[in-house]
């Protein structure tokens, strides 16, 4: 299993791997917002956390369709499915590798992009923390979409459309936790706990659903 994790990480940083694509997209989205909104620093600071979250959500949807499709195209998926190791464990490990390669860089990049949006330290810290807790959920939900669309030649957009409705709660609770942290009366913990609960929930449901979708797509 460690071997699979390391291989997927290696693949994602090699040519065509797409680990940097997500971060670059994230930077592009966030960097153009101030130009569009104009130099109103207070407004930027107010919408900053929401923009960062939307950017991170869209960026993490980018490479998801290749999660299983690349394995299927070169025949590796057949061998992976034949092993004794339960398929859902394999799926979980692939998700972990995918998140480390594409989700973690987003979390790391978010403080710098927060500066673009004139956010203060407290808002930047809260955004980073909620992204850290929330982006794994997006990967895990995405694994289900990727598994359903594995046999479709151009499944990229379909995966995003399948995944987006399920990822909306992650966005809602992520952003509301950040606002709770910077605006005084609302408590930070309840929305943050729900965000973590969503991640844990999909850590269980995601691999099970993805594994069964993969089993049924075998031909």
């Amino acid at each position: 299993m460690t071997a699979l994790f390391l291989r997927d990480l290696k693949l994602s940083v090699r040519a065509g791997g797409g680990a940097m694509i997500g971060v670059l997209f994230f930077m592009t989205v966030v960097a153009v917002i101030p130009f569009g909104v104009g130099p109103d620093l207070n407004l930027l600071a107010r919408i900053g956390p929401a923009i960062l979250w939307i950017g991170a959500l869209l960026a993490s949807l980018l490479g998801l369709d290749r999660l299983f499709q690349a394995e299927r195209e070169d025949g590796s998926l057949d061998l992976i499915m034949m092993q004794e190791t339960p398929l859902l464990l394999t799926v979980l490990v692939k998700c972990a590798a995918h998140w480390t390669a594409t989700g973690l860089p987003l979390v790391v990049a978010s403080p710098f992009l927060g500066l673009f949006m004139n956010m203060d330290e407290r808002a930047i810290g809260a955004t980073m923390l909620t992204l850290l807790a929330g982006t794994p959920a997006i990967t895990l939900i995405g694994a289900v979409g990727a598994a359903v669309a594995v046999a479709l030649p151009r499944g990229g957009l379909l995966v995003s459309i399948l995944v987006l409705p399920l990822a909306i709660p992650v966005l809602i609770f992520g952003v509301s936790a950040v606002y709770a942290a910077i605006e005084d009366p609302a408590p930070f913990l309840p929305p943050f706990m729900i965000l973590m609960a969503i991640t844990l929930f999909f850590a269980v449901i995601g691999p099970v659903a993805a594994a069964s979708a993969l089993r049924h797509s075998a031909d």
């Binding site: 291989r7 090699r14 070169d74 025949g75 590796s76």
Partner: peptide, 28 residues
């Protein structure tokens, strides 16, 4: 679980070296 399956496709990654591919399958 006791079988090797060699299909039409080679199940090796083009981006990795042969050595990395073989080490991966050996360990996996």
């Amino acid at each position: 679980e006791l079988s090797h399956y060699l299909g039409h496709r080679n199940a090796m990654k083009r981006e990795l070296t042969v050595e990395e591919n073989l080490i991966f399958w050996q360990r996996f």
